[in-house]
Design a binder for these strands. Structure first.
Lengths: 209, 209
DNA sequence: TAGATTGTTAATCGATTAACAATC
DNA sequence: TAGATTGTTAATCGATTAACAATC
C-alpha cells in the first residue's frame, strides 16, 4: 500500500483519468474495452491502456476492464475516495461559479466554507454557504484541519492569502488567480490559467487562418 | 510574414507567453533581462530565453530585451494584436463569471454577445450584455462573422451547440464543459478541464501526505 | 480454435535542461 | 576591458506512439 501511494504518476495521465472516470460513470456495461473508451474520448487506444495501467487494474484480453473495479481504482488514484474538505476564498463571480457547480462533490471536493474580505458580503449567503471574514481564515483552518484552499480573489491578494493558509496548515492550493505563488516545496499549488488556455486557442486560430 | 504565421510553436511555450506578458505589463523598465523575468515567475532562465525566442525578438547581451518591443511581439504571437470577437453561450454561473471578468479585453478577447436557451434569461441583462435566444446563434454568427464561440452550458448540450456554430462559420471553440467535442480537423477546440486540474491537485496531495 | 484485446518492451518524438561560444 | 546576458548547439528527460507476444 505505502508503495503505490508514493509512486509518481505522469501528470498528463492524471489529467486524463477523470475523463475516463466520467465516461465510466455514464455507461452501464459490466466490462469495457480500452478500445471503446479510446474511441469515445478521441484518444489513442494505446494511450488509454497506458493511462489505465497506472491504476494497477488489469483487464482481460477480449473482454476489457471491469467497470466497477476501474472506477474505484481511478478514484483511489486521484485521492477522491474520501472527500477532500476545502475552503474557498473570494466570493466574486468566479468563486460563485465554483460554489454553484455542485458536481465537485463527484470529484472528491467538498467546499465547507467561504471567505471574503468585503464587509458587505460577510454574513450573507451564497448557494447556502455563509460567508466568513478572511480574518477567521487562520483560526478555522486550524480548527477544522482543512488541507485545501481555493483562491478566487484578485491576483493582488493571492500571495498573502496563500501565506496565511499555509501557516495555518493548508497543504494544497487551487489557484484561480494569475499570480505566481511562492510556497515552500512541500506545498502543492495547482494553477488554473484561463489566460494560458485562451492563448492556445487564439494562437492556433491565428495559424489556422 | 506569411512564413512566421504558419510556424507551429510549442504549446507549453504558448501557455507561458501570457505570464511573461502580464509581468512585462506590470514593470516600468525600458529593458528587462530574461534572468529577472525567470526569477519573478519561478521559471528557469534558459526556458524563458527559449520561450521568448519564438517571438523572434532578440535581446542585447548584458542589457536584456526591450520591454515595449517584447510586449508587442508576444501579443502578435498570441493573436492578441487585434481583438478577437467572440460569442458566449450559456449564461449560468460560469458564463457570468467570464462576463464579469473584464480583463479578457487585455487578452485579445472581446465578447460581443451572450446566448442562452432559458426563456427567462433571454432579453435580460448581465453586466451590460443582453441575452439572446440560442435560436439566433446561427444567424448572428453569420451576420457578425464571429469566429470564436465560448461554451459555458452543461456538457449535454455542448456538441449540438458546437455543430451549430461551426456550420455558421465559427473556427475556434473555447469549451468549458466536460464534453469531448467532435469537430472537423480545421476547427480549433480548446478545453478548459477544471476537473483535470483538480485531479492533479488531489493526486499530488495524496502522494504528499 | 480464431481473433480481439491486453500488457510489455522498444522506438520515436518533443520539451526541458545543460553547456558554451558570441557579444554588448 | 571584464563580465553579465544572449542565442545556439547538444544532452537529457519524459511522454507518446509503435510493434508484438501473451492470453482469454
Amino acid at each position: 500500500m505505502k508503495k503505490d501511494e508514493k509512486k509518481i504518476y505522469p501528470l498528463p495521465s492524471i489529467r486524463r483519468l477523470p475523463l475516463y472516470l466520467n465516461y465510466l460513470r455514464k455507461i452501464h456495461e459490466e466490462n469495457i474495452s480500452g478500445t471503446v473508451i479510446a474511441e469515445a474520448l478521441d484518444i489513442l487506444p494505446i494511450q488509454v491502456r497506458k493511462d489505465l495501467a497506472i491504476t494497477n487494474v488489469t483487464g482481460k484480453p477480449k473482454v476489457g476492464f471491469n467497470v466497477k473495479e476501474l472506477k474505484k481504482a481511478i478514484e483511489h488514484c486521484l485521492g477522491w475516495n474520501n472527500l477532500n474538505d476545502a475552503f474557498l476564498i473570494g466570493a466574486g463571480h468566479f468563486g460563485q461559479a465554483l460554489l454553484g457547480y455542485k458536481k465537485f462533490r463527484d470529484h472528491g471536493l467538498n467546499i465547507v466554507a467561504v471567505f471574503d474580505k468585503d464587509e458587505d458580503k460577510v454574513g450573507t449567503d451564497i448557494f447556502g454557504y455563509k460567508i466568513f471574514p478572511v480574518e477567521k481564515l487562520n483560526n478555522l483552518i486550524q480548527r477544522m484541519k482543512v488541507k485545501i484552499g481555493i483562491i478566487t480573489t484578485p491576483g493582488s491578494t493571492a500571495q498573502e492569502l496563500a501565506d496565511t493558509m499555509i501557516e495555518a496548515g493548508v497543504l494544497g492550493i487551487w489557484n484561480f488567480t494569475p499570480a505566481t505563488l511562492n510556497v515552500p516545496e512541500n506545498i502543492v499549488v495547482e494553477n488554473v490559467r484561463l489566460v494560458s488556455s485562451l492563448s492556445v486557442l487564439t494562437s492556433k486560430l491565428k495559424q489556422q487562418i
